[in-house]
Design a binder for these strands. Structure first.
Lengths: 354, 354
DNA sequence: ATGAAAGCGCTAACAG
DNA sequence: CTGTTAGCGCTTTCAT
């Protein structure tokens, strides 16, 4: 089945030189006379010679391939990262291979990956994988170049490239507060990357700054899926004191909220304001178009690749932790809070006036 | 930088046996006494030994990795394939790596890929890449196991796993005809995989069967993007005799049509019926929900992986060309044609009555 | 400027 | 059952 690949030995033989000379001629390293070089190149061309990457790697060389490990290829954010990284990597004559870890980022699978990594890749970028602490610990012990993107669950010695979830979420919440909202709900995503937690921190910081008490009943937990957003919104709608705005930890869940609200006969943003996170393409297509936050994927991708390259080339890394401010995109799903109901509670009103 | 990986020699030394014995003990091939086997396994465990894939490959072994080459990771269809293939591959203790060729499926890049392939992968699956004829010719010359998915531009000696575009498109068009539509437009995607052409063939076959003359003015060319769908629909709306239904070669373009129709103040499906292709997740979310066609991605993925495995293991391939019927999903975007305008042309009417 | 030898980590093939 | 030898395709090191 496997075609006998053309080897350097054959090229050398055809050119009438030693293997080593052929190697030098082709790699350009070391002294080779122009004459022999031409001979070797001609022979290689005729035979259709392609160097065997594996053999080269076994001598400690590089593959010029870097790997990206992701956990959800359906995510528009992750796809944006991949696209940007592909482009950036190619600027350095390297290639990018993607590994879809799905929810298989177990220790066993991790070591399996690491095993495959023995030389197959020059370095690895992990984009938002659902990573357990043990898994991260394993990565930290690896001597291979690794960069983490959008991981902020805990501090690590590995280089990290993050979007600023905290300030972004704070901005978004503050925006809702400025629109007159007092009861603002927050819907969590999954806890694995720490992003959701950072976003909640920003949410709480904005509330606190505005003197609005934190109400745990307004904080729901989803799993980043649209369905979980629908379910969370449905639970929020059963509250005696309904929120007037929902801030979801990602756009998908915000879409899910829309579904629930439509189902309940409520209008966005008249009855309920909605803010998402990520600015996936659909966000500018849905009706009403979604107010959301956007990480600077392009800049982050470039930074991640460059940081990884620095480690691969043994150049001094820039910084352990790079953080990029997120952009707030105001669209139509957020608007002024509805006029307060006649039923008013002293406490809430008092705070609103403060 | 690179941690000196634990090698078999070290394991053997620690266990007090020869390298070969250690190899046998770990691989399970050949005779090894239980006693020595235990010793070796213990030593390997303590040292944290992991076999070097490259070295193994250099001896002609397999990597247990298969590659998937795609051209658009943002495509929901492609992501569905990837997810299904990942799962299927894992059933055979193998791994899947993804290469995003974007629009870089040039010959130069192809040979670059092929070079990387020298042993790094046991086989390759191409999913709907924008493939030139020369590129395909190169693939056909490769001795490595390769399977093509959703490629029907031309016949090839490579094994192909396809959805049935022709019959699917014919069903969809016939459905529109049965709803009373006579002027049905078709929007092409890109020509690279041949799918769009197959779909047009199905469209024309249905028209012909119903005795509706083919009108080239009703056939537009898009590029599978939503925007191109909008533009195509806008052009169709300028026609003196507007269509009453549009069949787009994929869902994205159908969404784009929706945008154009909304912009023109037309209602779907009252003023215009819409049918897409692919059944991407959004199709069941948009309002009105989209009538569309679905390839059986799960069955196709399994078939592709199994076919590839057969070639990798040198087992006889099943068939050169596997075709899976596509499912027609009727939703809300297609409905009865609006009542014909008073202005009627003799020819058209006559045909309708036939 | 060119060549020969050694060896990367592993396993197939043949001894013992 | 276990060990020895050889060699995959390439490059590093040391000769010539």
């Amino acid at each position: 089945m496997k075609k006998a690949a053309v080897t350097l030995v054959q090229v050398a033989k055809k050119a009438g030189v030693a293997v080593m000379t052929a190697s030098r001629a082709l790699s350009g390293e070391g002294y080779v006379s122009e004459e022999t070089k031409a001979k070797v190149l001609a022979a290689a061309g005729e035979l259709g010679y392609a160097p065997n990457t594996l053999a080269r790697v076994m001598k400690g060389g590089r593959t010029n391939v870097i790997g990206v490990v992701v956990n959800d290829l359906t995510s528009a954010v992750i796809n944006a990262f991949i696209a940007e990284m592909s482009a950036e990597v190619r600027r350095y004559q390297m290639d990018l291979f993607i590994y879809n870890a799905v929810d298989d980022l177990t220790l066993a699978n991790g070591s399996r990956l690491d095993q495959l990594l023995h030389g197959l890749w020059d370095g690895l970028i992990y984009v938002m994988p659902r990573m357990s602490d043990e898994y991260l610990a394993m990565l930290e012990q690896s001597e291979r170049p690794i960069v983490l993107v959008n991981y902020c669950k805990r501090t690590t010695r590995l280089p990290v490239v993050n979007g600023d979830n905290f300030n972004g979420a704070r901005d978004a919440t503050q925006h809702l507060i400025e629109l007159g909202h007092r009861r603002i709900a927050f819907i969590h995503g999954l806890p694995y990357t720490g992003q959701s937690e950072e976003r909640e921190r920003g949410y709480r910081a904005a509330l606190e700054a505005a003197g609005i008490p934190y109400d745990p009943k307004l904080v729901e937990r989803g799993n980043y899926s649209e369905l979980s957003g629908t379910e969370a919104a449905e639970r929020l709608l059963t509250l005696a004191e309904r929120p007037t705005a929902i801030f979801a930890a990602n756009d998908e869940m915000a879409f899910g909220c829309m579904v629930a609200l439509q189902g309940a006969g409520l209008s966005v943003p008249r009855d309920m304001s909605l803010v998402g996170f990520d600015d996936v393409p659909v966000s500018s297509i849905v009706q009403p178009r979604m107010t959301t936050l956007r990480h600077p994927t392009s800049a982050m991708s470039k930074a991640a690749v460059q940081e990884l390259l620095r480690r691969i080339l043994n150049q001094p890394g820039r910084r352990q932790r790079l953080e990029f401010p997120s952009e707030f995109v105001v669209r139509e799903s957020s608007a002024a809070a509805p006029a307060p109901k006649p039923v008013r509670r002293a406490g809430a009103r008092a705070r609103k006036e403060s």
